[in-house]
């Protein structure tokens, strides 16, 4: 089985998207997001494993950051001043790998090895195996403290890179996030952006039925953060939030998303946290994402 990408055989010049005017950028990002979703579905189909719900909910925010805002490329992968993108919700590695492959960090065909024996594409990302991965995440609540350290390093070194970190919403039940949130506000890390993939579902149930997070924006604001509460599946809204004035504070973007976004029968259903679609369901999903 081989991965198919850009079915019309007309690949987008993804490296050029960052320089487009904002409106056009948002439109191009939608196309890239659709391709990333197609790759995710195919990877999970081949591996017969993965976290499809969270992969599909975080896709638009990941794509918007990686292709629309941040200085992230294979050419600058070892540049000390590169921007840092950290996927704290490391179980959604398929989404990150798809983004990195489309950006040219490794061949798209390598996505077929996702979770295969000895593959560099482990179920959770490893920075020593894959260029473009900044943190070895997986256990939850690790990405934000690391991102805070990166943001401190950015200021201390005078190189002034941006750090974007993607967390789940259920993940915010880990206390280490709030330790880091205090540090970030205390140190006025306005070069740090947290994107919360607010899909309202965690592995076992709805977040609000497990350990309530709401009012989530108020929580971050009370910790001293600038808050943007937006539609997290809308590339235009994400672009606007990612580039908004931060008023000397760290910024949290509460990206309200649908878990499983883009595939009707997966959307907003708790059982699709890590369920694997049948062959028929894969075909249906790819048809919806055509």
């Amino acid at each position: 089985m081989t991965i198919s990408v850009w079915p019309d055989n007309k690949p987008l010049d993804v490296a050029a998207i960052r320089d487009l005017p904002e409106g056009e950028r948002a439109e191009q990002l939608k196309l890239v997001a659709k391709q990333v979703r197609r790759l995710i579905v195919q990877m999970i189909d081949i591996a017969r494993a993965g976290h499809i719900g969270g992969d599909l909910s975080v896709t638009d925010a990941l794509v918007t950051a990686a292709f629309g805002v941040l200085n992230i490329s294979p050419e600058t992968a070892d540049d000390p001043g590169r921007d840092r993108l950290i996927l704290s919700k490391g179980h959604c590695a398929a989404a990150l790998y798809s983004v990195l492959a489309l950006r040219g960090f490794f061949p798209i065909a390598d996505l077929e090895t996702y979770m295969k024996p000895l593959s560099k594409l482990n179920g959770h990302p490893n920075r020593l195996k894959v260029k473009g991965v900044e943190a070895n995440t997986g256990p939850l609540g690790h990405g934000l403290p690391i991102a805070v350290g990166s943001a401190v390093a950015s200021k201390l070194s005078g190189k002034n890179w941006q750090t974007f970190v993607f967390t789940g919403d259920g993940e915010l039940q880990e206390g280490s996030n709030w330790e880091a949130a205090m540090t970030a506000a205390h140190r006025k890390l306005d070069n740090l952006v947290v994107i919360v993939d607010r899909n309202r579902l965690q592995q076992g149930a709805r977040t609000e039925d497990t350990a309530s997070l709401d009012p989530l924006g108020d929580k971050w604001a009370s910790f001293g953060w600038e808050v943007a509460d937006i539609d997290g599946n809308d590339t235009a809204a994400l672009l606007k939030a990612f580039t908004q004035n931060r008023d000397g504070k760290p910024l949290v973007v509460i990206a309200n998303t649908l878990k499983g976004k883009g595939v009707s029968f997966i959307e907003d259903r708790v059982e699709w946290h890590h369920k694997v679609p049948s062959k028929e369901q894969v075909e249906l999903a790819l048809k919806e994402l055509a």
Binding site: R84, A135, G141, H142, P145, G149, S150, E179, A180
Partner: peptide
Amino acid sequence: PDRLINVGIAEQNMVGVAAGLANGGF
């Protein structure tokens, strides 16, 4: 003074912050 990062009473955060600093070349 700038090179002492005191995160407060928060050990998990402390070690994570150190990893981010190491990622940033420190």
